[in-house]
Structures are given as C-alpha cells and as structure tokens.
C-alpha cells in the first residue's frame, strides 16, 4: 500500500514538473473549466426536473 502511494506521489511530482515547464497546466485548466461548466448545466437541468416532478 505504502509503495503504491509512494509511486503515485513520485509520479505526481515528475508529472507536475514536466507540465509546468511547458505551460501544459493552462490548457488543463481551460479543459477543466469547460467540463465543470457543462456539468453545472446538467445539474441545473436536473434540479428543474426535480422541481417539476414534485408538482
């Protein structure tokens, strides 16, 4: 378990180093924002449906 955690942590470090040198994180952030926006929209439709179903 510990060794798995260690490898993940190590990978995270390596990955973040690679990423930050190439401004990869900018695109990652943009994609994240777009997806969060779409999920937010899904949630709002879901809420409206919940209200309609209550009636």
């Amino acid at each position: 378990m510990n060794s798995i955690l260690n490898t993940i942590l190590l990978q995270t470090q390596v990955a973040t180093e690679q990423v930050s040198t190439q401004k990869f994180e900018v695109t990652v952030a943009v994609i994240a924002v777009i997806f969060i926006g779409i999920v937010g929209y899904l949630i709002s439709i879901d809420r409206k449906l919940l209200k309609l179903e209550k009636k």
Binding site: Q11, V14, A15, Q18, E25, V28, I31, F35
Partner: peptide
C-alpha cells in the same frame, strides 16, 4: 452517482493530459 461520474471524468480529463 452523477457527481461521482463528473468527478471521475474531471480527474480523467486532467490526469490524462499530464500523466507520464
């Protein structure tokens, strides 16, 4: 499960780009 799905996809979208 909807939130779980959203979180998993968000993780995969992000980590898929930066994982070695």
């Amino acid at each position: 499960w909807k939130i779980l799905g959203a979180l998993l996809v968000l993780y995969a979208l992000i980590w898929g780009l930066i994982t070695p």
